[in-house]
């Protein structure tokens, strides 16, 4: 009996030492994790409070009838049923939103790309032109929209005044349902500064020798654009498209301000006016604006939450599809997909 511990001692010692080392490693690993967590905590706390909790609450409220003051009342899928089958404003708002994504986003991306491409070719005054094209991006959206509504005022705006002098009757711009969305696209194209700068950086990053090789192979300018430039800036193109689509799905400020100012409702006290939703004739009623009306004018926060959940689902799906499809046309230099 007495020999057992003696005999076991040499075997146990390394095991105990290994155990001790293991514990120490585990403690160190925990300390490391805690340190990482401590460094991450500002973000984690912010994410939980300002994103996670509101997201969960939005999902919960979407199943309730809630006017912000009375306690939420559980109504199951009623909000979703009404949203998808009965609300007559939803589909026009969805159509308008899809229009701005399908027409506005490609035009803005192409325009930003075009301007950036031209700026890479400029021989003089490059800094000046870069500044000029970037400047609109610094103007707050509300101020920019007010400026455009003024410039495009059908009876007193400078554009129509000039057209009038030329004997052309200018359109009603923001006051005509056929012209209101194109006017918003014009406003969007004017403010492409940020996208343009990103394209410019990507274009300047394309190795010059690739153009020279293509040129030696007899490639035309269009072919060089198609087979050299576009593949090499395709990651930035993807970024611009995804960002544009998400911004299109959340399109609010410009449309809301333009509609209210053009309708003459901007000066109504306390925002109490009952004029038109999406003036003129619903042409600027975008999905986020309808959501805002339900949440903060009619105080149907449960219904507005259901609209928000649907918007999130659509944005997520849309982005996932674009990213998945992008594998076919986006070229990452030296990167493994």
């Amino acid at each position: 009996m007495a020999s057992e511990p003696v005999a076991a001692a040499p075997a146990l010692a390394p095991a105990a030492a290994a155990l001790g080392r293991g514990r120490a490693r585990s403690r160190a690993a925990w300390r490391r994790r805690l340190t990482i967590l401590a460094f991450l905590s500002p973000w984690l706390v912010g994410f939980t409070i300002f994103f996670g909790y509101p997201l969960v609450m939005t999902a919960y409220l979407s199943f309730t009838s809630y006017d912000l003051l009375s306690p939420p009342r559980w109504i199951g899928l009623d909000n979703y049923r009404y949203l998808l089958s009965e609300d007559v404003d939803v589909w026009p708002a969805v159509r308008n939103t899809l229009w701005i994504i399908a027409i506005g986003v490609p035009l803005q991306v192409l325009f930003a790309f075009g301007v950036a491409a031209m700026l890479t070719r400029a021989r003089a005054g490059v800094g000046f032109f870069r500044t000029i094209f970037y400047l609109p991006a610094l103007v707050p959206p509300v101020a920019a929209t007010l400026g455009f509504v003024y410039i495009l005022n059908p009876s007193t705006g400078p554009i129509n005044t000039v057209l009038d002098r030329l004997g052309i009757q200018g359109p009603l711009w923001f006051n005509d349902p056929a012209w209101a969305k194109p006017s918003l696209v014009l406003l969007g194209m004017w403010g492409i500064g940020a996208t343009m700068i990103i394209f410019l950086a990507a274009l300047l990053d394309v190795p010059q020798h690739l153009y020279e090789s293509a040129e030696l192979d007899g490639a035309s300018a269009l072919q060089r654009l198609r087979w050299v430039t576009v593949p090499l800036v395709s990651p930035v193109l993807l970024f611009a498209v995804v960002l544009g689509v998400i911004q299109g799905l959340q399109y609010f400020t410009q449309a809301y301000v333009a509609a209210n100012v053009a309708a003459g409702a901007a000066s109504q006290a306390g925002g109490s006016s009952v004029l038109e939703q999406g003036y003129p004739e619903g042409s600027t009623l975008f999905y986020p604006i309808l959501l805002y009306y339900h949440g903060f004018r009619y105080f149907s926060m449960g219904y507005a939450s259901a609209m928000a959940v649907l918007l999130l689902a659509v944005a997520f799906t849309f982005t996932a599809i674009v990213i998945r499809q992008s594998r076919r046309w986006v070229h990452y230099q030296g990167a493994v997909r």
Partner: peptide, 21 residues
């Protein structure tokens, strides 16, 4: 119970009527 929404719905229609649509 729907606040101004009933008037808003009516106003949206009136706008279309006034425009001849």
């Amino acid at each position: 119970p729907i606040g101004l929404d009933h008037l808003q719905t009516f106003s949206n229609f009136v706008a279309k009527w006034n425009a001849g649509d």
